[in-house]
């Protein structure tokens, strides 16, 4: 375990008892969401991974069960723009999509 071991005052069983149902529901939402994409009307998305957001979402799920800690930080890093130089222009750009458009798809 990491430098953060023991920082939550609850026991591990208490954490599970308190939060399991909420997160079971969130996982089911994610599963149903991926099913819903596949059930959608055909367009240029042949596979959900063809969309850069879903490609990153699925990559991020691999962090959950890789046996290493700091999953929240590492999931956020999967979705983050890894470049370092400022963008030439933000003209016409306002919002953020939640995933980096330069990420490989498919």
């Amino acid at each position: 375990m990491s430098e953060f071991a023991g920082t939550c005052p609850l026991t591990r069983t208490q954490v599970i008892d308190q939060y399991f149902m909420e997160h079971r529901a969130k996982l089911l939402d994610l599963a149903a969401f991926l099913d819903r994409i596949e059930r959608g009307q055909p367009d240029e998305i042949a596979d959900p991974r063809d969309d850069f957001r879903i490609a990153q979402l699925l990559d991020a799920t691999k962090v959950l069960d890789d046996g290493q800690g700091e999953r929240a930080r590492r999931v956020l890093e999967v979705f983050s723009d890894p470049t370092e130089q400022p963008l030439e222009s933000a003209a016409g750009l306002k919002g953020a999509s939640g995933a980096w458009a330069g990420h490989p798809t498919g």
Partner: peptide
Amino acid sequence: TPHLEDKRKGTRL
């Protein structure tokens, strides 16, 4: 600091 995918880079800048 910027939203979502732009946050980590923007926070450093």
